[in-house]
Amino acid sequence: MWRHFASNALTMLVLIVFVAGGVILWAKNQYTQPGPLADAICLRVESGSKIPSVARQLNEEGAISNETIFKIGAEYSDSARSLKAGSFLLREGISMAEINAIITGSGRSTCGTEVNFRIGILRNQVVVSELDPETNRYVVRVSFDPAEDAVPTDYTEVRDDPDVRFRVTLAEGATSWQITEGLKAADFLDGEVAGVPVEGTLAPDSYEVASGTVRSALITQMSEAQKAILEEAWRNRAADLPYETIEEALIMASIVEKETGVPEERGQVASVFVNRLRQGIRLQTDPTVIYGITLGQGSLGRGLRQSELRRETPWNTYLIDALPPTPIANPGKASIEAALNPEETDYLFFVADGSGGHAFAKTLAEHNENVAKWRAIEAERSNN
C-alpha cells in the first residue's frame, strides 16, 4: 500500500515538474518571440511609473500578449527597478524582451519631440519636430529664426519638457564666430563662451545634447571631433602634397569647402589649388578675399568689388603667393579628405557653369571660354 502511494506520488511529482517546465518554456517563448504590435508606436513612460502600470499600458496599446508574462520577465531579468521615464519608439512586432530592454536601458528618448538648433552660414534656425512612428520620420511642427522671428508658443511649450531631445547642427563652412554666436543664442544651453575658437577647428556635424549642456563643453566636443577627423585624414594623405603641416591642410580644406557645395566636385576643386601651389601660381579664390574683409563675422552679402580684390590683407590670394595664414571656415569631413586626397587632374582653373557646379579648365584659353559662357548665363538671367 505504502509503495503504491509513493509510486503514485512520484508519478504526480514528475508530471507536475514536466507541466511546470512546459509552462516556463511556453512563457519564455512568449516573452522573446515577436509580439502582436501591428504598427509602430511611441510609448510614453511617465516619471514615477512602475512595471505593472507600463504592462497595462502596453496591453492596451496591443504591444504585448500577456501582462503577467511581461511583468515576470522584467522581474526575472532584474531590470524592473531600472525603468526609465521618456518616449520610446516601439517598432511593429517587437518582442516583450526587446520592449523591456528599451524602457530600462539608457533612458534616452527615441521618439517624441526634438528641438534642432541649426547654425547656418546666412542664418540660424530652430526646428521643432515630432517623430511619426509609422514612417519613422520627423514631421516639422514649427521652425523660426531666433534672431528675427518671435518665439512661437509651440517652442516654449516643449522647451522645458524633460522628454524633449535637443540637437545642435553645424553647417559645413560656417565660421567659428558664426558658430559661437549661434551657441550663445541657443537658450537651452548653459554657461559662457570664453572666446571664439581657432578658425577651422570645429567639426560640422549634428550633436545631440541635453537641456542645460554647458556651451564650453560642447565646443570642446566639436573641437575633439574635428581633430580626430583631421588626424585620420592626415595619416591617410596622398604623397607629395604641397602642405608642410597639418594646419596647412586644414586651410586648404576650408577653401575647398567654401568654393563648392557640390560633393562630387570637391576632389576636382582641391586638385586645382594643389596644381596651382605646385606650379607657384596664386590661388586667386574669392572666398579668401571675403574672409579678409569680414574676418568670418557674418557674410559679405554682395559681390566683391574690384577695389576689394586689390586690397591687401593676409587672406587676399590674388596678391599673396601661397596659402592664407588661417582657415577661412570650418570644413566638413569630405572637404578635409578632398584636400588630403585630391583627384589627379591637370586643371588649373574653374568657374561657375550655371547649374550650381563648375566648369574646369586646363588652360587659360579654355577657362576664358568657360567664363564667357558663364557671363552669358548671368546676362540672360538678369534680363528675365
Rank of each mutant, 00 (worst) to 15 (best):
W2P: 01
A6R: 13
L10P: 00
M12Y: 11
V17C: 14
A27C: 14
Y31V: 01
Y31D: 02
Q33S: 13
P34S: 05
G35P: 02
G48I: 05
K50T: 13
I51S: 02
E61Q: 09
I69Y: 04
S79N: 12
S87M: 06
F88V: 00
L89H: 04
E92L: 00
E92H: 09
T104H: 03
N116Q: 13
F117C: 02
R118V: 07
R123M: 05
S129W: 03
D132T: 04
E134T: 09
N136D: 15
R137W: 03
Y138D: 11
V142E: 14
A147Y: 12
T153M: 14
E157H: 09
V158A: 07
P162Q: 05
T169L: 12
L189E: 03
D190K: 15
V196T: 11
Y207Q: 03
E208F: 10
S211E: 12
G212M: 09
R215S: 04
L218K: 03
M222A: 00
K227A: 14
I229T: 07
L230G: 01
W234E: 02
D240E: 13
E244A: 12
A249D: 01
A249Q: 05
M252V: 06
V256I: 12
K258S: 06
T260L: 05
G261M: 04
E264K: 09
G267C: 08
V269H: 01
R276W: 12
R278K: 14
Q284N: 11
G298H: 06
L300N: 06
L304Y: 11
L304F: 09
L309S: 11
R310F: 13
T313M: 12
P314F: 13
N316L: 09
L323W: 06
A329W: 00
A338M: 11
L340P: 01
D353C: 07
G354T: 05
A359Y: 05
A361R: 05
T363G: 14
W374E: 11
A376V: 07
N384Q: 15
N384T: 13
